[in-house]
Structure formats: C-alpha cells, structure tokens
Simulated scan of single mutants.
Amino acid sequence: MEWPIEARVTLLGDVYPLSEDEQEWAHKQYIAKHPHGLSEQWGNFHYFRMQNISDIYFIGGFGTVAWVDVKEYEALQPDKIAIDGGEHNLKELNAIFSKPLRELLASESEVDDAALISIDSKGIDVRVRQGVVWFLFFDFLAKVL
C-alpha cells in the first residue's frame, strides 16, 4: 500500500459567485485543467471566487499542522520549479533516476521501490518502500532558481 504525502490547506474567507460574463471564462479554465471533469453533467454548475481570505490552516502530514499568516501568504510568489511543470519534471526525473536511486539505497539494505514524489526550489522528497513505506527529505544547500 502506498501512502502519498498529501499536504492540504483550508482557506476561510468570503466567497461569491462569478458574474455571468465570467462564468464562461472560468469554465474554459476549468476544462483546460480538468478535461475529463464532471461539470458537463451538471446543468447548474457555477464558479465562485474567494474575495478575502480571513484564515489559512495548513496540514502537511506527519503531524505538521499550522495556522498560516494571511499577509505573509498573500505576499508569497509561487515556486518557480513547481509551477513550471513540476509534475512533468518528476516523471522525467523518475524515469532517469528511480532505478539508480533504488540500487544505491539497496546497497545498504533491501529496497522494494524508490521514487521522487515532490520537488521544489528548496529540495526533493523521496518515497522509499522497504516492506513498509518510508519518506526521505533532501533539502538543497541553497534555494534553486
């Protein structure tokens, strides 16, 4: 059984429906991101915008939970590696390095599987399966990009 790291966040704030002229634009954005989405099946599917974020609650896994300062969050810029094809980069990196990584780790003990599961400018997260699943976290010495 695999246990992926699935960080999540709860945003609390004021939510309003988009105006009628913005609904079509939002729908095109949604279909571009989720081409097999279910919105086509619902006649009353509408899009909304969160105007003001009042609170942010982060759950990162492994007991990591925290309230995030809204002003700090709003001042942040997206991570360049994550937004510039992070998922695609992971697939390519795993195609190249998953087997050598597994072999390297297996030199110390038996390893069933090893894969990069997350990458950003601060580091890489690796899932290692040795009967049970273990997670390794590698921080870069300096921020990349």
Rank of each mutant, 00 (worst) to 15 (best):
Phe97Ile: 03
Asp55Thr: 02
Asp139Tyr: 03
Lys33His: 12
Tyr73Glu: 14
Leu116Gln: 00
Leu18Ser: 05
Ala95Pro: 00
Trp25Ile: 14
Gly63Lys: 12
Val9Arg: 08
Leu136Phe: 09
Gly85Leu: 12
Gly60Trp: 06
Ile124Pro: 01
Ile117Val: 15
His46Trp: 10
Ser39Val: 05
Ala114Gln: 02
Ser118Lys: 10
Ile124Gly: 06
Leu136Gln: 03
Gly61Glu: 08
Gln29Gly: 12
Gly13Met: 04
Leu93Glu: 02
Tyr47Asn: 08
Gly85Ala: 10
Ala82Ile: 08
Lys122Leu: 13
Asp112Trp: 03
Gly37Glu: 07
Val9Tyr: 00
Glu110Cys: 05
Ser19Gln: 06
Asp69Trp: 06
Leu116Val: 14
Leu76Tyr: 00
Thr10Glu: 10
Val111Leu: 08
Ala114Leu: 09
Ile117Trp: 01
Glu103Asp: 15
Ile96Trp: 11
Ser39Asp: 14
Ala114Gly: 05
Gly63Ile: 00
Tyr16Glu: 14
Met50Gln: 12
Val144Glu: 07
Val132Cys: 08
Val128Pro: 09
Ile81Leu: 06
Glu2Thr: 07
Lys122Arg: 11
His46Asp: 04
Val15Glu: 14
Asp79Ile: 07
Asp21Arg: 00
Val70Trp: 04
His34Trp: 07
Glu24Asn: 12
Lys33Asn: 11
Arg8Phe: 03
Val144Ser: 05
Asp21Pro: 06
Arg49Ala: 06
Leu116Tyr: 15
Glu74Tyr: 07
Val65Trp: 10
Val128Ile: 11
Glu108Ala: 10
Leu145Lys: 10
Gln51Cys: 05
Tyr30Phe: 15
Val126Cys: 08
Leu141Phe: 02
Glu92Lys: 09
Val111Trp: 06
Arg129Tyr: 00
Asp14Ser: 02
His27Trp: 08
Ala66Lys: 10
His34Cys: 01
Asp112Gln: 02
Ile31Gln: 14
Arg49Trp: 06
Pro35Asp: 00
Tyr30Val: 10
Leu11Glu: 07
Tyr73Lys: 10
Val68Ser: 01
